[in-house]
């Protein structure tokens, strides 16, 4: 039940707040990918691929980018498979736990998140700007948006930790 609430909260934040953020044209944080980063470890790879594609398609509908988020989400889970095989998470997997800062450790979680978040922003920006590629715009938007998204992810993990720890 709490996982359903968590999904609704993150998606609402993305579609109601961050998609409409007008602080800077270099800032387009994609917080909803946290849902894919923290998918439960026991889920089969096929199920994870289907979840990623569905979630990406929903995100596409909200921001008028047919296929871009769906494609990026698919790559994100594939890279996540590769990264998580290098980490020993068998115990967490057998206990049906999600991948997060509490189960995997802060350093490991933020290391994986960093790679996935930067990749995701870079990928969607390249696809969105294919018609008139502007390297500096893509670079700075990737940098700022990734940094902002990572800060949000860190904050959400910190809040969840404290709540769970009580």
């Amino acid at each position: 039940m709490s996982r359903v609430f968590y999904w609704i909260l993150i998606l609402a934040l993305q579609f109601f707040v961050f998609n409409h953020l007008e602080l800077s044209s270099y800032l387009m944080p994609q917080l909803f990918i946290l849902l894919l980063i923290t998918l439960p470890l026991h889920l089969s790879k096929t199920v994870q691929i289907i979840i990623a594609f569905s979630l990406g398609l929903v995100a596409d509908f909200f921001v008028a980018t047919p296929g871009i988020h769906a494609s990026a989400c698919l790559w994100l889970v594939l890279i996540r498979f590769g990264l998580l095989t290098r980490i020993d998470l068998k115990e967490q997997e057998s206990n049906r736990l999600a991948f997060n800062a509490k189960t995997a450790g802060v350093t490991t979680f933020m290391y994986v998140s960093l790679i996935l978040v930067v990749f995701y922003h870079f990928y969607i920006l390249v696809l969105e700007n294919l018609g008139a590629f502007n390297g500096a715009h893509v670079f700075f938007t990737t940098l700022l948006s990734s940094l902002f998204t990572l800060l949000l992810i860190g904050f959400i993990q910190y809040v969840s930790f404290n709540r769970l720890g009580e």
């Binding site: 594609f53 596409d60 047919p66 296929g67 769906a70 494609s71 698919l74």
Partner: peptide
């Protein structure tokens, strides 16, 4: 397969 679908859309 799904990437091909996305490629078509994009």
């Amino acid at each position: 397969v799904l990437q091909i679908v996305c490629g078509f859309l994009v």
